[in-house]
Write a protein that binds this DNA or RNA. Structure first.
Length: 489
RNA sequence: GGCCCUAUCGUCUAGCGGUCCAGGAUAUCGGCCUCUCACGCCGAAGACACGGGUUCGAGUCCCGUUGGGGCUACCA
């Protein structure tokens, strides 16, 4: 019994930074392959010579790995169907183009870009559909010969009548009339194939069973189908995923949304959270669970649960999810991530023990690793910079504040180091009983003195981490600030 | 403009003809917890785009309208 193997591909074009949409489509390809014990392939679609760059390819592969995807074949890992870079497969395309030329499924075109633009101009004026006018398609053999080896492209000869039915696994059959389909350029004048040709040839030659790609490709699928037909090949199963959207519902774009995977990495999003979030775009767990691992997704995966409305990429929900993942980490694991995080690394001064002490205080407050930068600032920055007025809870005067803080300093100073939060708290609470300020006010003034902020982790735990010396000196600073005469002029 | 896809709370979604005066999540607001913030817990408000059908019965099926999106390159 020969069960044909599931083979899918992730096909990024290295023309820019690693795109979140690539990870999104890649995720579903990867999961589908895993579910069916198939193979997931990475193929680099670098057929646009002007825009493709090798460094982008490297970044893309790196980011896809970062986010947690893996592949069985690709330019970096090899495989039996290589090469996996389209720029290295030119001879394959040339051979196939010749086949199309020979069979009459395609033809050469010598039209200049200028002429094509003029034709389009006219069509726009006439409010006619913008399509190649078929000039070279109608050329007599002698006329064609006359062009000799002038630069040319090869175009697909789309039938004038009839239509092509696209079978998409997620939708009803889609019929597109041939009158709507342009004589697509298959081979550019620089000898490189266009997406359409390279894609079809490679998907066949690499034995892809399913093509899972974004919805934007639906309208060009008839061209692809015609190519499969012209070559006498059986097409793969097509599945068009919804497009990720900006908040205004346009196709996700870098003008309106961060789209680079590097951005999310730098901000301190956890890759597993990002992937989990992407999984929620157009797909749901059978039990509606929203927080799940990649393996759990694979366990429960089925394309039955895809929904086709284009999902808006909502940063707020991503942040929430990321916070969930941060809280799920063990404190030790979180420290490790923080130390690795490019965003916060510079602050940590390689003092990982200090980070280990701070981490538990901040864990439930962080939404991204990058938040550490700001939230932990007072653990690193000395002296603190804050406004004197912050030390004075609603209407209390400086004289009182000086007294209270001085007394608290004395109470605290009685504790020898190292400090323990429970002991400090007990002493201060005892002091509060006889003090002229209520606990609320005292705690707040103390918090400001210790952190320079109105919001902080629990006071005494924070003081324990800061340590005796730093806390006492910050208290002195606070008192000094209160005593400093108001500068006039 | 033409063609195609799509349509449940602001957002992500559950719902696959009756169990839906539509459920969950997030965001928002209120409360509890509490030394602040956060976490956690409780609660509130918030949607089936519209109009026709089909059916005993429609968020669920069909058609139309409207909205949104994509494609319309020698870019992918």
């Amino acid at each position: 019994m020969t069960q044909s193997q599931v083979r899918v591909r992730i096909a990024p074009s290295p023309t820019g930074a690693p795109h979140v949409g690539t990870a999104y489509i890649g995720l579903f390809n990867y999961v589908f392959a895993r579910v069916h014990d198939g193979r997931c392939v990475i193929r680099i679609e670098d057929t646009d010579q002007a825009r493709s760059e090798r460094r982008y390819e490297e970044d893309i592969l790196r980011s896809l790995r970062w986010v947690g995807l893996a592949w069985d074949e690709g330019p970096d890992v090899g495989g039996a169907y290589g090469p996996y870079r389209q720029s290295e497969r030119l001879s394959i395309y040339r051979k196939h183009v010749q086949q199309l030329l020979d069979s009459g499924a395609a033809y050469r075109c010598w039209c200049t870009p200028e002429r094509l633009e003029a034709v389009r101009q006219q069509q726009r004026q006439d409010k006619a559909p913008l399509r190649y006018d078929g000039h070279c398609r109608r050329l007599a053999e002698a006329e064609a010969k006359a062009h000799g080896d002038q630069p040319s492209v090869v175009r697909l000869k789309v039938p004038e009548d009839g239509g092509t039915v696209v079978h998409d696994a997620f939708r009803d059959p889609i019929t597109i009339e041939h009158g709507q389909v342009d004589d697509q350029v298959l081979l550019k004048s620089d000898g490189y194939p266009t997406y359409h040709l390279a894609n079809v040839v490679d998907d066949h030659v690499m034995e892809m069973s399913h093509v899972i790609r974004a919805e934007e490709w639906i309208s060009s699928t008839p061209k692809h189908l015609m190519l499969y037909h012209a070559f006498g090949w059986a097409p793969p199963v097509f599945m068009h995923m919804p497009l990720l959207r900006n908040a205004d519902r346009s196709k996700i774009s870098k003008r309106k949304n961060p789209v680079s995977l590097r951005y999310y990495e730098r901000q301190g999003y956890l890759p597993e959270a990002l992937l989990n979030f992407l999984a929620l775009m157009g797909w749901s767990m059978p039990d509606e669970r929203e927080v799940f691992t990649l393996d759990e997704m694979i366990e429960s995966f089925s394309f039955d649960r895809i929904s086709l409305g284009g999902p808006v990429f909502d940063l707020q929900k991503l942040e929430w999810l990321n916070g969930m993942y941060i809280r799920q980490l063990s404190p030790a694991a979180l420290s490790e991530r923080l130390l690795e995080s490019t965003r916060v690394k510079s602050r940590l001064l390689n003092d990982s023990a200090y980070v280990d002490a701070i981490t538990p205080l901040l864990q439930e407050r962080l939404r991204t690793l990058g938040d550490f930068q700001d939230m932990a600032a007072f653990f690193y920055d000395t002296p603190l910079a804050y406004d004197k007025a912050m030390l004075l809870p609603k209407g209390r005067n400086p004289r009182e504040a000086v007294k209270v803080l001085t007394e608290v300093a004395e109470v605290l100073a009685r504790h020898a180091g190292p400090w323990h939060d429970a002991e400090l708290e007990a002493s201060v609470r005892t002091y509060v009983e006889g003090a002229k300020w209520p606990g609320r006010d005292l705690f707040m003034a103390l918090r400001i003195a210790m952190t320079g902020r109105t919001a902080s982790p629990p006071l005494f735990a924070t003081m324990q981490v800061l340590g005796r010396d730093l806390c006492l000196s910050r208290l002195e600073d606070a008192v000094a600030l209160l005593q400093k005469p108001v500068k006039s002029g």
